[in-house]
Simulated assay, not measured.
Amino acid sequence: MTDAELDLHAPELAREDFLRIEDPYYSPDTVAVVTGAASGIGRATAVALATNGLTVVGADIDEDGLAETTEIVEEFDVDGTFVSTPTDLTDDDDVEAVVDAAADQGDLRFVANIAGMQHIASIPEFPMEKYDLLTDIMLRSPFKMAGAAMSHIRGTDDGVGAIANMSSVHGHYATKDKPAYITAKHGITGLTRAIAAEGEGTLRGFSVSVGYVLTPLMVDQIADTADERGISKREVIEDVMLGQARTKEMMAPAEVANLFVFGFSTHASHLNGADLLFDGGYTHTYE
């Protein structure tokens, strides 16, 4: 099959895709903030949590994408709700505002820092303005979000909650041409552990690491990687992305969202300062 015949697109979400868990905190009185909620993993996680009955405040700069997420939640007729909140995650005031808005909706207990971006270039050729933007969104913003949310979580009747950070297999190892992304994902590991260290057991911090997920961001990255390395898109998928993996298919966004559903639940009370690694055998197996 040639590149022209490749039909790469993110899968549409379906209600049956999502894990449902009976949990005392999974109710409309419980609020979760989800960043990057306008598309991809962030959208799927917002829908998954609303499907489990929570009030979800979705933060993203893409207002049209947030409107589409709202439509999906309404179409699924779930027990929870989705509150669209346009947010510039590079603006500290906006981050504080979305956290305060979430706390006004009920008991803010959960934060999913998922928003991300990618830029493909080697270290000598990497534009510093792209580095700054990427790390602002993927490292500074989660730090600020945690700082703003922790007092609200601690202020609930029992102080129970969790802050989850989207990491990656690139938070475990490095490959070429993704230096800023790798830097941010390794940094998010430290932030996750710092949250757990300060959480006193009831406020947990954890991260989620996956391999390649078929999102709009990933579709763009396939093309960029093909251009950067001078190979075909199919070679990018089969050799670069899935070559070392044992599970030879990309994850769907809903599969990643289900990890956040489990991680926030009381079934995961010992998941603290640690990482949920679902990578199809990519990180710890070799030829």
Rank of each mutant, 00 (worst) to 15 (best):
183 T>D: 10
177 D>A: 12
191 L>G: 01
179 P>T: 11
83 V>A: 05
154 R>W: 01
204 R>P: 04
186 H>K: 03
86 P>F: 11
202 T>R: 14
172 H>L: 15
135 T>F: 01
167 S>T: 14
168 S>M: 10
158 D>H: 11
154 R>L: 03
112 A>E: 01
98 V>I: 09
144 K>I: 15
140 R>S: 10
184 A>K: 02
171 G>A: 14
203 L>I: 13
188 I>Q: 00
96 E>D: 13
119 H>F: 13
148 A>W: 00
141 S>M: 14
133 L>H: 12
119 H>R: 12
121 A>T: 01
126 F>I: 09
121 A>C: 02
96 E>P: 00
182 I>N: 07
209 S>Q: 08
194 A>V: 09
141 S>H: 06
103 A>T: 02
105 Q>Y: 01
153 I>Y: 10
83 V>L: 08
188 I>T: 12
161 G>C: 07
107 D>C: 01
84 S>V: 02
161 G>I: 03
177 D>E: 07
195 I>H: 05
173 Y>P: 01
94 D>M: 01
97 A>F: 00
166 M>S: 14
101 A>L: 09
92 D>A: 15
100 D>H: 05
94 D>A: 15
108 L>K: 04
108 L>N: 04
114 I>D: 13
137 I>P: 01
141 S>W: 09
156 T>D: 04
206 F>N: 04
94 D>W: 00
192 T>F: 07
177 D>M: 13
161 G>S: 07
128 M>C: 04
131 Y>L: 14
175 T>G: 13
182 I>W: 00
115 A>C: 06
108 L>W: 06
120 I>R: 05
201 G>Y: 00
150 M>L: 12
129 E>K: 12
107 D>M: 08
89 L>P: 00
92 D>N: 12
148 A>V: 04
177 D>K: 13
202 T>H: 11
118 Q>D: 14
185 K>C: 06
165 N>P: 03
86 P>C: 08
126 F>H: 15
158 D>E: 14
201 G>S: 07
146 A>E: 00
180 A>Q: 08
121 A>N: 02
196 A>K: 02
106 G>K: 10
169 V>L: 12
96 E>A: 15
109 R>W: 04
